[in-house]
């Protein structure tokens, strides 16, 4: 069983690492382990871009 956590950044504004860390820790206490991390950068208006990080957790058997 998977759980997904999505974190948004933006051009010149990195991901909130504190939020990533606290969610990873919380998921671990709930019995999930981080299995995959995906990221994508999307073009936005006026030449800007937006970043999205997708953390994929899997239930530990």
């Amino acid at each position: 069983m998977y759980k997904f956590i999505m974190i948004e950044g933006s051009c010149g504004s990195p991901y909130d690492l504190k939020s990533c860390e606290s969610h990873a820790n919380k998921m671990t206490t709930e019995g999930y382990t981080l299995e995959h991390v995906y990221q994508t950068t999307t073009a936005s208006c006026l030449g800007q871009s937006k970043r999205v990080l997708v953390m994929v957790f899997k239930k530990t058997q």
Binding site: E35, H36, V37, Y38, Q39, T40, T41, T42, A43, V52
Partner: peptide, 18 residues
């Protein structure tokens, strides 16, 4: 150590920005 991978299908169509 898990390295972030590029999310296939995560980008917008060219010029769409949404």
């Amino acid at each position: 150590m898990i390295k972030p991978k590029d999310l296939h299908g995560g980008r917008f169509l060219w010029g769409a920005h949404h």
